[in-house]
Design a protein around this nucleic acid. Structure first.
Lengths: 192, 192
DNA sequence: AATAAAAGAAAACAAAGTGTTTTTTATCAA
DNA sequence: TTGATAAAAAACACTTTGTTTTCTTTTATT
């Protein structure tokens, strides 16, 4: 890819991210983005079909970055429980806060977190399989996966809205406290 | 309120709801709403400041209806556990499906469910207090409340996206299975 | 350094949508 | 009936979008 293209793309992403920190997605215009990024109108539309497309690509890039890093970290997991992954995700979210502050502010966070949850489903599934958890007798596996990634995302939303007062480690321990009791209530056939 | 006003307001709500069943909120124009509702442009703006305002009012009306009905039902709760309330909410959601099908479809469901979650927080809090649950030693109460209403909302989202295959009773039992273990892990001082 | 190819800038454009104003007509409640 | 209120219709200024055209700059390659 051409240097100019990379520069333009980065400038647009950066401008967009800054704008998202100020106002909600729906109130941002393409004009504001290109003014802030210092690129021409034609240039913007050469890179992105629409504003929606820009948002989608930004979300995908960020989520891929965060989740893939968490995926890697599960490789090291020495038979340990999944808390490491969740803590890892939280730390990553906080570290990248400055980059993604916009997406994590007000209304717009919903959009990002929806992408995030979709990626999380895969991560949670692999965690469950990795740990060889017997699936709960009464609860369908897809319900369980949705419950775990769904409540993780809701926790992140709550965390952000509360201005991230808790540390990732605190949150991780709370989260484990509400999730592990369900996982340990497994089929009694092998624990008796 | 004038009969004409009531009629107009109802026509706009109805048209808007139908349109939401077809396409996402952001793609609906005021022109489409007034064409579908058979009201003049001026009339629309006499009733609602903007399209966002219309959405907000619709969400508020629906959520108030559903949640207040659940609030009432807790009055009868004869010392029983909160499952009755959640099951009640689920049944209500399904019964009103035809009225609110639009808000519960695709992207737009997010918007509705965010309103829903806010109202739910109050309901969950009153449930916890009602039941006189000792608060968990390790988990802050607001974390717990957010976890419960958050995962309820995520469950509803999952339910809707999966075309509501499960019965409210099924879902209620799954939900209790993932929530009650947390609540029963209460302060050991009074169970020992 | 010279050059062809690619990328970007600037300006103008049609089309669509928003929210307001003005005028006229219909409906309500008393 | 009558004054007051609500709604309709049409025109409006304005904003935003996405495209087109023309021209300039930057890049990689020779």
């Amino acid at each position: 890819m051409d240097r100019r293209q990379k520069k333009t793309r980065a400038a647009i992403f950066s401008a967009f991210t800054s704008l998202l920190a100020e106002k909600s997605y729906s109130k941002i215009t393409v004009q504001e983005i290109i003014d802030s990024a210092n690129v021409g109108r034609t240039t913007f539309y050469a890179h992105f079909e629409t504003k929606d497309d820009l948002l989608k690509e930004l979300c995908e890039e960020l989520v891929a970055h965060i989740v893939s890093s968490a995926m890697d970290c599960t490789l090291y997991s020495d038979g340990n429980v999944p808390e490491s992954v969740f803590c890892h995700l939280l730390r990553h979210l906080r570290e990248n806060y400055n980059n993604i502050i916009g997406l994590l502010s007000c209304e717009s966070s919903e959009i990002f977190l929806r992408f995030f949850k979709d990626s999380l489903n895969g991560l949670v599934l692999s965690q469950l399989v990795n740990q060889d958890r017997k699936s709960h007798v009464d609860i369908p596996q897809d319900f369980l996966i949705n419950h775990i990634s769904g409540s993780f995302v809701e926790m992140v939303l709550w965390w952000i809205k509360g201005r991230m007062k808790q540390t990732p480690a605190d949150l991780d321990s709370y989260f484990r406290a509400v999730i592990e009791p369900i996982l340990s209530t497994r089929e009694t056939s092998d624990s008796a």
